[in-house]
Design a protein around this nucleic acid. Sequence first.
DNA 1: TATAGCGCTTTGAAATGTCAAGCGCTTGAT
DNA 2: ATCAAGCGCTTGACATTTCAAAGCGCTATA
Lengths: 114, 114
Amino acid sequence: MSATPATPRSDELCAVHEAMRLLQGKWTLQIVRALLDGPRGFNDLARAIGGCNPATLSRRLEALAALGVLSKRVDSTMPPRTCYTLTEAGEALQAVVAAIERWGDRYLPSAARS
Amino acid sequence: MSATPATPRSDELCAVHEAMRLLQGKWTLQIVRALLDGPRGFNDLARAIGGCNPATLSRRLEALAALGVLSKRVDSTMPPRTCYTLTEAGEALQAVVAAIERWGDRYLPSAARS
DNA sequence: TATAGCGCTTTGAAATGTCAAGCGCTTGAT
DNA sequence: ATCAAGCGCTTGACATTTCAAAGCGCTATA
């Protein structure tokens, strides 16, 4: 009944494996989720995802930008504001975020305390 | 500065946040994916997901069992074999895994070679 | 002038993950 | 009977990641 490939194959697994590793980075999903609501600046983003310190956030954003999930734009106006926006690939992660939201709502609404 | 609570206090967000944090544990998704093919023993599982050392795997399995994603069963036969199986909640994660697979296949097939 | 906001970076310490090795056990080959 | 090999882990030392706190240069507002 599993619709997944039964045998782990190196070729096909590679992309998936890479995707999993990417999404396993701490705060990655929260960042994407926050940006799904629209572009945000650095501190605004930090506040929106709640409790991520700037060092980690900075590194994560850099990594995500390098992978093409989001892009960083700096306004050259004079208070130079930064703006992080999801790319097409980043917005496509909405499906993943939605799946996680559905799962979380259903399977750990009450049990998530220990 | 004033009112920025260090503790997440919105109920609805909590489940989703918790789900994300859970899935962000290293090897978690790989473990679930491997178990979607059917129950496996410890070493078999380790080999299936490729490159996870026993210490981490052990800790992760314990955490996942505590959260009700999978269950551990020990056969009392005489080479006492262990068997890790997904619970209903665990199998429901298939939707998440599938979403990630689709995204990975589509958005990082060529870039992820290394 | 002072305060607060912006976008970060730097600093140790703490949590987390990794590697190598090994333990008790049993089975299968020599 | 002996030995290597597999099972399911645990341990202890080490590397990486994340943390909270503070601070920096800047500007706009009070």
